[in-house]
Design a protein around this nucleic acid. Structure first.
Length: 729
RNA sequence: GGGCGCAUAGCUCAGUUGGUUAGAGCGUGCGAUUCACAUUCGCAAGGUCGCAGGUUCGAUUCCUGCUGCGCCCACCA
């Protein structure tokens, strides 16, 4: 008899949680307990969501795409592993907690102290973790929770320390004083990728150091000029006659300068005045030029708080902006200011704190990307990254991102991995002297996986860039540095699916780490999805109030509807728009499917599914053939990552071919047809429905599983749709 | 400044290697319907596939140029 449930519309709220539990308890998310003899594996390691917040549409898209691949491969008989996890997201999480604490208690992290502060961060991370993982379940993600990992848990910490030690021993990690991006607001260094540029109006001043200095200099930051040690001109430019000369400036706004003119091809003789005032300590390019010409690199005039130092003479203690004003005043009064023009320039600001980035020389830990590696045939890390994609070992979808990837590698500088924040992996380095970090003379340094023995050791206070631990993700999650069976079986992973915005942050760094440590690629295929935007193509944001919460969607329309809406029309690498209207359309689809089943059940009472049935009428044989071709097509789409197309084809077939045409015609047959026609049609219907449910399952797993259970009433858990066989081989 | 991409129906977008009348969803109009459908079904209107050239028997699809839009990268002082 037909189940009473079919007399009412499909109710996802009543269904989804129950079905997820059924799946999870079956143990089939775990490849070790998955039935099947096939030894071929298929692995995805989940990009770990940050423990800072809640699930958003981007996560929902990621989870849906990955779940589709995983469910599809599982049905194709692969030993399928989808390994979930979360990311401690060092700076983001610390900043978030600092803000909360300041808001409620008006205290800074320094007021609380390192230990207490870390306790608070961990408590927050724990709570946030629980929210995130339960939300991942709501999305229907069929991942193996028994292998769940966290970028800051014990195993991953061991992996991080081991990697650091390895790279240090190979001379790839070094400590050095170099110009870094310093965020005065967050009091930490940040990587190039954590900078956002803001366009601002600025003034470009053209001036001379003194009346008899021959070359005019342009700058937007006169306060840094107190730190100048030279002027660079093009070797063949109009100022070449001065190359090699040194000018003593006894009084430049209260300090004395010694300016040497050097010739450097990096100077554009056509631009500006054709000369650059060299401030080695507060500009990247100047630091490099100074290095090439052995200019003094210790004239630091701005400190970590963006204030002037003692070396700025009378300006010491002033904010940079104040110093700028008074120097401009001084230049004017001395008649040294030649020009003042309005320009727009890009100011570097820190992504997380919004602070204006101050380039400063600091003693930091770096990864050398240009050093030949003995264990890798003398190749550099850059070489390894480039070769992984160039050789075709890694394919990036869509293809044109490969160009962007190569371009990024060409411009890559040494990677600064130390951060002056507290939350994260502590740098596994210990020093044995009380001397300040800035002064490494007489200092004993120990680098190790475990702390050193003996007294007087003090660990480096810094933590590692969060992408250092993320870089190990595909293999640290599988147990590295231990030689585990998981690594042997599941690494390299098959697909890395993520948003294109973290191609450099993360993907490139995983390639770097994996090629270096294991000699293999971390994954075979990179599938990049675009940004999820609102119905009008705007970014979802709190201030616009146009965000759509995937959990709300699940409540209102059902997870299946949200998943389908995210997939149809979503091509890799392209942003997509989503609106409630679109989602509503797919809620109706779930209900349509529900009613299709009701019709089929009611009209095929007593009919048994006959495998290999051959008694089809000519009409039905043709319909069967068309159906088969469609499924072959869809299978090809699945293999070639065209999920958007597979989903649409299946949707169209189920609704507009199967329901609108075939079911409508069946009404006539069941009323007036011969017994042979009826029999043929009943077999066609149950075979078609069987296959429609199977092929739709990766996309809309809940409603298809629920229908399957009600229709087929399988005895054991092996009869679940989740582990049914994909109908096309 | 360098790089990458996009421009197709009122809106949001598909169109898989060039091949008959270019598709979907939403929206719009007309009609039907308590017979699986908190509805659904049928029918319809609507596109010189950004512009200009080129390759080809044939171009929305390939090439060149132009225009408009978007994204990423960047230490022009």
């Amino acid at each position: 008899m037909i189940n009473d449930k079919f007399l009412k519309p499909y109710n996802p709220q009543e269904t989804e949680e129950r079905i997820y539990k059924l799946w999870e308890e079956s143990g089939f998310f775990n490849p070790d307990t998955l039935p099947g003899k096939c030894e071929k594996t298929f692995t995805i390691v989940m990009p770990p969501p940050n423990v800072t917040g809640v699930l958003h549409m981007g996560h929902a898209l990621m989870l849906t795409l990955e779940d589709i691949m995983i469910r599809y491969k599982r049905m194709c008989g692969f030993k399928t592993l989808w390994l979930p996890g979360t990311d401690h997201a060092a700076i983001a999480t610390q900043a978030r907690v600092e803000k909360d604490i300041y808001k409620t208690e008006k205290k800074s992290r320094h007021d609380l102290g390192r230990e207490e502060f870390l306790k608070r961060v961990e408590a927050f991370a724990k709570q946030s973790h629980d929210t995130i993982t339960s939300q991942i379940r709501v999305m229907g993600a069929s991942c193996d929770w028994s292998r769940e990992a966290y970028t800051l848990d014990e195993k991953r910490s061991l992996a991080v320390r081991t990697m650091f030690k390895m790279m240090y021993d190979d001379g790839l990690i070094y400590r050095g004083s170099r110009i870094v991006n310093w965020d005065p607001k967050g009091q930490t260094t940040i990587s190039d990728d954590e900078i956002v540029y803001e366009e601002r109006k600025a003034k470009l001043y053209t001036f001379r150091y003194s009346k008899d200095f021959p070359i005019p200099i342009a700058t937007t930051r006169p306060e840094t000029k107190l730190g100048d040690v030279g002027v660079a001109v093009h070797p063949d430019g109009k100022w070449k006659q001065y190359i090699g000369q040194t000018f003593e400036i006894p009084d430049f706004a209260g300090v004395s300068l010694s300016i040497k003119v050097v010739g450097d091809t990096e100077v554009d003789p056509e631009f500006g005045t054709g000369a650059i005032g060299i401030t080695p300590t507060h500009s990247f390019i100047d630091w490099e030029i100074a290095g090439r010409h052995a200019l003094n690199k210790d004239r630091i005039v701005i400190n970590e708080y963006a204030k002037m130092t003692e070396k700025a003479g009378p300006h010491a203690g002033k904010k940079t902006s104040e110093a700028r004003e008074s120097i401009v005043e001084w230049l004017k009064s001395e008649g040294l200011l030649e020009k003042e023009e309005e320009i727009t320039q890009n100011v570097s600001t820190a992504e997380r704190t919004g602070g204006i980035v101050e380039p400063l020389p600091k003693l930091q830990w770096f990864i050398d990307v240009n050093k030949p590696i003995k264990t890798r045939e003398g190749k550099t890390l850059k070489d390894l990254m480039r070769e992984a994609v160039k050789s075709g070992d890694i394919k990036i979808l869509p293809n044109h991102f490969e160009k962007i990837y190569f371009h990024w590698i060409e411009n890559l500088r040494d990677w600064c991995i130390s951060r002056q924040i507290w939350f994260g992996h502590r740098v596994p380095v210990w020093y044995r002297s009380k001397l300040k970090v800035e002064d490494k003379k007489d200092e004993e340094v120990y680098v190790g996986v475990e702390p050193p023995r003996g007294d007087g050791w003090e660990q480096d206070p810094d933590t590692l860039d969060t992408w250092f631990s993320s870089g190990l993700w595909t293999f640290s999650t599988l147990g590295w540095p231990e030689k585990t069976k998981d690594i042997e079986l599941y690494h390299p992973t098959d697909v890395l699916e993520t948003g294109y915005e973290i191609l450099f942050f993360w993907i490139a760094r995983m390639v770097l780490m994996t090629k270096y440590a294991l000699g293999t690629v971390p994954f075979r295929t990179v599938y990049l999805h675009g940004t999820v935007r609102d119905g009008q193509g705007r970014k979802m944001s709190k201030s616009l109030g146009n965000g759509i919460d995937p959990i709300d969607v699940a409540k209102k329309f059902g997870t299946d509807a949200g998943r389908m809406a995210l997939i149809v029309g979503n091509t890799p690498g392209t942003d997509m728009n989503i609106s409630e209207d679109k989602i509503r359309g797919y809620k109706n689809f779930a209900n349509k499917l529900w009613n299709i089943v009701r019709f089929v059940i009611e009209n095929t009472q007593g009919e048994i599914f006959e495998d290999g049935f051959t008694g089809y009428t000519e009409t039905d044989a043709k319909l069967r053939e068309e159906r088969h071709e469609m499924f072959v097509d869809v299978t090809k789409d699945m293999e070639e990552y065209r999920f958007y197309m597979a989903a649409e084809k299946l949707y169209h077939y189920a609704w507009h071919t199967f329901a609108d045409k075939i079911l409508e015609e069946s009404k006539v047959i069941f009323e007036k047809g011969t017994d042979v026609e009826k029999k043929s049609r009943k077999q066609l219907l149950i075979h078609s429905l069987d296959k429609i449910l199977k092929t739709l399952h990766p996309f809309i797993p809940f409603v298809t599983e629920e229908i399957w259970q009600l229709w087929k009433q399988p005895k054991g858990k092996d009869g679940m749709l989740m582990v049914a066989e994909w109908p096309i081989k």
